[in-house]
Structures are given as structure tokens and as C-alpha cells.
Amino acid sequence: MKLTLKIWRQKSRNDKGQFVTYTMNDVNPEMSMLECLDVLNETLIEKGEEPVAFEHDCREGICGSCGFMINGVAHGPERATTVCQLTMRHFKDGQELVIEPWRAKAFPQIKDLVVDRRAFDRIIASGGYVSISTGNATDGNTHLIGKDTSDRAMDAAACIGCGACVAACPNASAALFTGAKIAHLGILPQGKPEQDRRARGMVAQLNTEPFGSCTNIGECTGACPKEIPLEVISVMNRDYIRASWKKRDDDVRTVRPVTDWSLSSKP
């Protein structure tokens, strides 16, 4: 099949960037979107041009590396599918695909379709864990956890941190991402002792990063390749409101968002 790819090319963060149109005449419907880009890149390299930089790793829809907008939809038209598993049979012969990177102030551009998602790591670092050092654990069956509870935690824990929620949100909010971790750990008895502190810490960092606010419209969950439910955002709100009410001190600290990559000293 034949496809026209209009791809965002940008050399670096400070470069202006522009769309470049590529025509592909021989797309196999069985290939994935990323394999399609591989094929394009091979031809670009052979022509002496720079290939399109895009992020990818496992190509099984679980590592969360890949992701870009296709015709205005995060990860493209198939629900619950990352671009690495999106096969070309979902497009029509002759179709034009507009491919552009996630756009958000909190995800600074790096090159072409690659963006910087370290804000997510900082949000997790601010409380997205159970503070239990290795060796402290009791037997795995000490806490009996009902199957429903465990399944609900797993639904939230399925997040792959790809950033599609932020990309799809008109406000570039990371509420779904943050809510997913707060819900996963808050639902389980192991996460209860830290529930308040976790909510305050993670929400504080979320708000320190230049993400927008949640307006409860649900674009995020529609774009989410793991279909994380909107419910997790309300869990975050509930935990945060309760924790803010109960708190006795202001000991939560946030870290400054870093957008630089260079180390200052050179060997």
C-alpha cells in the first residue's frame, strides 16, 4: 500500500522544526508503525539523509518508550495499542499520516519525535513506592488481599509511563499517570501506612512540574494504551484532600525540574 507520511523534523530543542513529507510506495499492511519508520529510515540513510529519530525499545507495548501523535491521536487510531503494535492494516491505501511528537512544556523536545519524560521519574521519586528496604519483608501471605482488590491495584499498576495521557490531554496534565501510581499503592494494604504522605509528595511534585491541570474530560484514558481508568484521578484527589486535611507539618519537599542533559565537567 501507498502512504504519505508528514513527519515532524527538529534537530534539537532550540531548532524551530518543521514537517517534512515522505512518500512510501511499498508499505506492507502486516508491518508495525515503527517497522514502517525503520523502512523509511533505511531509505533515508541510503540517500545520505539523517534518519528520523524516534524512541522505541521492547516493541511489545510494555516498555513505554515509543509514542507519537498520528493524525492528532496519541499512539494512533487503535484503542489500547502503542505505536509499536499498531499494524499498518489499520490505515487506508493512499492515506496521509501526520506524525508529530508529544507536545508539552513538561516534556521538552529532544530531537524529531523524541521528548524528555524525566518529569515522570521525578513524580515517582517523590513518593511512588512503599518504603520497605530489602530484608524487611514478612511472608508473602501475611496480608491476605482479596482478588478484587488485587485486580484493581493491578489495573492501575499496568501503566507503562509512555506519556500518551499527557500528550492527549488538552491541558497537558499528568493526572492519570500520577493517579495510577497513587491508586495502585493506596489500594493495597502494603501501601496504606504511607498513603497520606505519598499523595502529598506526588501531588506536590506533579504541581511543581509544568503540567496543566485535570479538567476531568477523559481524553487521557481514551489515549492510554493500557486503558487506565479515570477513577485513578479521583483516588488521587481523595487521597490528596484527606492528606492535606490531616497533615500536621509541611515536611514534603519537591525537586526542581531539570531540563538540561549535559554534565558540567568534561574528561
Binding site: 521519574d121 496543566g212 484527589n237 519537591t254 554534565l263
Partner: peptide, 27 residues
């Protein structure tokens, strides 16, 4: 050696309830 590639950085005070987007939405 500074560690700017690294995720760790200076720590600051957390935004209060009204400063947070979540707090404003609750209001």
C-alpha cells in the same frame, strides 16, 4: 562532578493546597 543528567536536584518546599491544581479543582 555535577549531576545534571541525573534525576536528583535541589529540593524545594511543596506547593500548598490552593497552589496545587488539585486543590483548586476541589475548591
Amino acid at each position: 562532578m555535577s549531576a545534571s543528567t541525573a534525576v536528583t536536584a535541589d529540593q524545594n518546599r511543596a506547593p500548598g493546597f490552593w497552589q496545587s491544581t488539585n486543590g483548586k479543582k476541589a475548591v
